[in-house]
Simulated scan of single mutants.
Amino acid sequence: MDDESVAERLAYHLWAAGPARTAQALARAGRRAATKLAFAAAGRHLESAARIARTAGLRELELSVLSLLTLVASRHAGYGGSTFDLLERAEYLARMLGRETEAVHFLFVRPVGAYTSIEKDRGRWARRAYEQGQASADPIIQAYGRHAWRAATALDRADRAVTTYGQRFAEGLLLLLRARLLHARGEPVDVVRAAAEAARARSDERGAHLFARRSERFLAEIDQEPPDI
């Protein structure tokens, strides 16, 4: 019997002991599945754990589960509507629990993810993070706001230049910037490398050799980093 089946049976038997233990068992099963790169199974376990915790009003536990679930969701299917919904719920819970820095982190992740997936709401989320950073005395929250806004402004201007002036030679640079954003977010090395290789290929295709060399240097930097544990 595989680990997933064992975890599901254990969670079923724990149900009688209460929702907290059940959700915790499912969360552990989800974490184990994620470490084995079984992201679909991990997502199912964690979604069940989050649903149980939410129904039982266990906000601390739900937030803990959502923190892992948002990471698993972004790695399994990329950023999309469901992942952004999870981030919104996590932000809400963090604020309810008085964890302002965590709340702004979840808000910050949304525009960063939106820029890597060309999500239409990216500017609005970046603006929210910036405004909250401006209103906060916490230097960490201030930094989140500034970064969410330095990425939104730069990439929006670049996108407009490409669209308006037909400067297709810069497309590879935009892809490289998005690869660097993925790297800064702590995405898996394989995901970052694929994005950087796509940037290099696009620059080569456009004859933008300077940008292609930048992508090559970034790829070399990635290869020198210690492997993910």
Rank of each mutant, 00 (worst) to 15 (best):
R193Y: 06
L155H: 07
Q132R: 11
P19G: 04
A23R: 02
L61K: 00
D223P: 02
L46V: 10
E100G: 03
L69V: 02
R44N: 10
R185M: 10
A73N: 04
E216A: 08
R157E: 12
P227F: 00
R193V: 10
D3A: 11
Y79M: 08
H105M: 10
L37N: 08
L182T: 01
Q224H: 11
H147F: 13
A16G: 13
K120W: 00
E197Y: 00
I52M: 01
R127S: 09
T153W: 11
R168K: 14
T70R: 06
R28E: 13
P139Y: 13
A38M: 15
L26G: 03
Y144S: 05
T101F: 07
E47W: 06
E197V: 01
V112F: 11
V191K: 05
T83A: 08
R9D: 10
R213D: 13
A220G: 04
A195D: 04
L177D: 11
Q134V: 09
T116W: 12
A34C: 06
Y115W: 15
F218M: 03
G133V: 14
G80L: 06
Y92E: 15
A33D: 11
G18C: 15
E4N: 14
W125H: 12
A29C: 07
A148S: 12
H45Q: 11
K36Q: 12
A158T: 09
F84I: 07
A126R: 01
D2F: 15
E62S: 01
S215Y: 02
F211G: 10
V162L: 10
I141M: 09
P226H: 08
F218K: 07
R59W: 09
M1V: 15
G98C: 05
A212F: 05
R99S: 06
V192P: 02
E225P: 07
R157F: 03
D121T: 13
A179N: 07
R122Q: 08
T22M: 08
E216K: 04
E100H: 02
R200C: 00
W15Y: 14
R185E: 06
S67E: 10
G81I: 08
L175W: 01
S215N: 03
T116Y: 13
A201V: 02
A208C: 06
